[in-house]
Design a protein around this nucleic acid. Structure first.
Lengths: 152, 152
DNA sequence: CATGAAACTCGATGGCA
DNA sequence: TGCCATCGAGTTTCATG
């Protein structure tokens, strides 16, 4: 990866509302060259899309929760069933299969504790094959995700 | 919040590269009205920015890690020092102050285990006031974060 | 005063040297 | 690869209910 690409990727994941002219300025290239590079990065799959960053608090989602889950069985079938169910619930924002103590870690957002209780009942408690579940609440966001570090 | 705003917010956090005309179509409003609504959402702070979604694997970041950290002291000073240090390291993608067993949860990305070892040495091990640290590796991303659910 | 339509302007896009 | 022309979309203004 070239130096110019790194500048472009960093700029785009930081603020993609910049114009091609501004990006070109930053990367020290012509507008058309910049345009071509960005298209190339999209086609190579480095850039998978563009999205608005919404503020959870402004949306009324004051509560963020990480949920660690272990299954009763680690069989292929049990895991497949669990993972399919996770995809069905839009209250589950994110899910990872983990090494270590827990099998899965989920991320959930809710308006308040009452709402989280409802999400727990209507969504988390319905996930199949769950043995144990531990919710950890985010009291404060110290650093928000603002893109990956890009090097080399 | 009006129904049209919900449609706009969902569409924008899903794919902000859509044209105003397309958004207007989706929300069932005129192009100029759509333009005004989006500006209003930005000014109200619901939309805090726009960003390109980069693919960590394509960037060579194959390893994602959640790190649970407890401090030796929960004094205001110790926490402030720790939180300031977290801000200084760009390898720490995200950080939350948590309820429950751990004090903080961090999210880190690395190219491979050797690289994670280096990050651990050069960044995590330098965080001040740390009593214990537990790294959990994401073996597979089951569901990627693709925006908050918007309702009401 | 809010809304929609139309004009205008600016920047993205593609061809050509 | 860089420059220029073209086109299309974002932006603003004005007229209308």
């Amino acid at each position: 990866m070239q130096r110019a690409d790194i500048v472009l990727l960093e700029a785009l994941q930081n603020d993609s509302s910049r114009s091609i002219a501004q990006l070109a300025e930053l990367a020290g290239m012509s507008a058309s060259a910049c345009h071509r590079r960005v298209r190339a990065l999209e086609e190579q799959g480095l850039i998978s899309g563009y999205a608005a960053r919404l503020e959870p608090r402004a949306l009324g989602l004051a509560v963020e929760v990480f949920v660690e889950i272990t299954l009763t069985s680690q069989s292929r079938e049990a895991m497949d069933r669990f993972e399919r169910a996770v995809g069905d619930y839009e209250d589950i924002l994110e899910c990872h299969l983990m090494s270590g103590a827990a099998d899965y870690i989920l991320r959930v957002a809710a308006r308040d504790l009452d709402h989280y209780d409802a999400v727990h009942r209507d969504c988390l408690a319905r996930l199949p094959g769950v043995s144990s579940m531990r919710s950890s609440f985010s009291l404060r966001r110290i650093k928000r995700f603002a893109g990956y570090p890009i090097r080399r």
